[in-house]
């Protein structure tokens, strides 16, 4: 394919899917990181345009964004560890963000308490709205394995939601400022 044709395809991909990829990243990272992740994801797409499936590129883009975010997190691990440490020394933030119901806050807390793999399979299904076959592409597993993972993740989320006892731990939300 020629460079102009490649470029036209990339622009079409961006126009169609950038919002979804940005939403994916924004659900998992702060605003600046999400912006970076979108740029990185489409840069990878540009470099590997021949690998991007023509029929359904979104799961491929999600998978790339997932890896980009994972790499970013790994790179930022030291700073995050420090931040977490410093966070502990600050006064506790309010129990819930404004505009988030008590039920929502409890759900988000339970979600945050899950293993990342469990959380991801749930979010791909619920927030990204992917069917199991497409979510399996994102996670690099078979559809059958995806079903098993989803089933287990749901059970764990239900278990995390079950004890309604008050807790002092508060899910920290990343802020943009």
């Amino acid at each position: 394919m020629t460079i102009p044709a490649d470029r036209a395809r990339l622009e079409a991909l961006y126009a169609e899917h950038a919002a979804a990829v940005h939403a994916y990243a924004r659900r998992r990272a702060d605003a600046a990181t999400a912006e970076d992740a979108v740029a990185e994801t489409f840069l990878v797409a540009w470099r590997r345009l021949r690998d991007v499936p023509s029929a359904d590129p979104l799961p491929w883009l999600y998978a790339t964004a997932r890896h980009v975010l994972a790499n970013q997190r790994r790179g930022d691990a030291r700073r995050a560890a420090l931040s977490a440490r410093l966070q502990r020394e600050r006064p506790a933030p309010p129990a819930a963000e404004p505009g988030v119901s008590e039920e929502g806050a409890a759900l988000l807390r339970a979600l945050a308490a899950l293993r990342p793999a469990d959380r991801e399979v749930l979010l791909l299904t619920a927030w990204e709205g992917l069917e199991p076959a497409r979510a399996a592409v994102v996670l690099g597993c078979t559809r059958a394995a995806l079903h098993v993972r989803l089933h287990r993740a749901r059970r764990r989320l239900e278990a995390a939601l079950a004890p309604a006892e008050p807790t002092t731990s508060v899910a920290t939300q990343e802020t943009n400022a």
């Binding site: 622009e11 961006y14 919002a19 939403a23 924004r26 039920e103 979600l111 619920a126 709205g129």
Partner: peptide, 19 residues
């Protein structure tokens, strides 16, 4: 899953960065 969907923080849509 429906409950999770109802609490999607980005359900209103996001504005991606310019290309």
């Amino acid at each position: 899953i429906d409950r999770l969907r109802a609490h999607d923080p980005e359900r209103g849509g996001t504005e991606p960065p310019p290309i």
